[in-house]
Each structure stands twice: as C-alpha cells, then as structure tokens.
Amino acid sequence: MKARRRALLLILPVFALLSASCNQRPKWTGFGRSSGAAVPETSSNSIPVASETGDVGSSEPGLDLVWKRYRAFEDGLVTGLALNKATFCQELGKQSCIDKVHLTFLGGNDPFEAGLYERAQTPTSITAVAVDRVVLYACSQRLEMDRVAASAAVVFKYFPLSGTPTSDQLKLQATDLYHRFLARDPEAAEITVIQSLSNKGLAADKLALMMCYSIGTSAENILL
C-alpha cells in the first residue's frame, strides 16, 4: 500500500511535467519565440509516414519533423549531463544501450552482425520505451554522481538533494536543464508548472530526477 502511494506520488508530478513540456509549449517558434509567435499544434505535426525508399505519405509543408537519431541523442545526454560516453548506459552492465541493445529503436542499424542494411524511417512504439530507459539511466547516473560530489556537483547543484527545494531553486535547476537538453530558455508556462511542484512535499532528489527525465524525454529533444 505504501509502495503504491509512493509510486503514485512519483507518477503524478511526472505527468504534470510531461504535459508542461509537451502540451503547453509552443512548437517551433525558433527566432520568433520571443515575439510570442507560435505555430498551432496540428495532428499533422509529425514525421511523414513513408518508406525511406518509397512513396511520400501525408505531411503538410513546414510541419514535418526530423528524428534525432541515436548518435545525436546520445551526445545530447553525454554532453548535456557531462557523462562518460563509454559507460553511461550499459544494459545488464555489459552491452551498450546506444550501440547495441537499443540501436535499431533509436534510429540506427547494424549491417554486420544483424544484417540490417537500412535504418528505420520513423520511430516505433518501442522507441519511446528505449528513450525513456536511456534518459532515466543518464539522469540517475548524473544524480548519483552529483550526490557524491555534493558541493562540487555539476548538474544538480541548485539545491541540496536531501532537502526540500524552494520555488526559485526549482526554476534555476529547470532553466539549466532546458539549456542542457533543449538549447533554449524555458517558457514561462513551463516554469510555472515546475515551480508548482515546490509545495507538494516531494523529496529533492526525486524532483531533480523527474525534471531531468521529463525534459530529456520531451518530444522536442527527440524530433527536430
């Protein structure tokens, strides 16, 4: 019962953060972002459904997206969270998440051993699971490194991981994570949602992990 309540407590804020990063944020405002210009979200805001060597499916001009594939995705985590590329994600402690286990679902192909001569054109349902898993690996690892580093923390340095963060501390941490993952400042709406978590009585390290996971797995980090 206790465990279920704890899981619920973890899940609810994650949903809140995900909805902040996926729904409230305007899409692709680019340089026009500061002026408040926003592209309306439509159902066709997607990668075209097509075979890479076949016909082109539906895609409205200017609304199709490009999949950030395995290497750039990996680089975003390794550089953004200052991790060791060789060791940051090993499934069962043995196989590289990026180059081996989840390669295909992250947009790569292995021609030599798997005989896959072409990469997938679009993400699959398993891509979402793979992205979740790899980002969670990366965020967890950074969190533990920063917990040990304490005052010398690299990423999670805006509030003590054992305390309860203030609204301002959350804003600073979130802003830093937006810079690291998405190369932009957060929108006001995004910050508001994140700050609203400060009075939920959540542990600081859980909040830190949730923020990292939510921003790192947002569609904006995967589809360009």
Binding site: V66, K68, R69, R71, A72, F73, D75, G76, T79, G80, H179, R180, F181, A183, R184, N221, L224
Partner: peptide, 15 residues
Amino acid sequence: LKRLKAIYCGQSLTY
C-alpha cells in the same frame, strides 16, 4: 542548426 548538428555531426545543439 539543430538539424544539421544532429545529422552531420551526430551531436545535439548546445545552448
């Protein structure tokens, strides 16, 4: 820039 860094450098755009 986001796209070209990902496609041709295998990197994510930095802030």
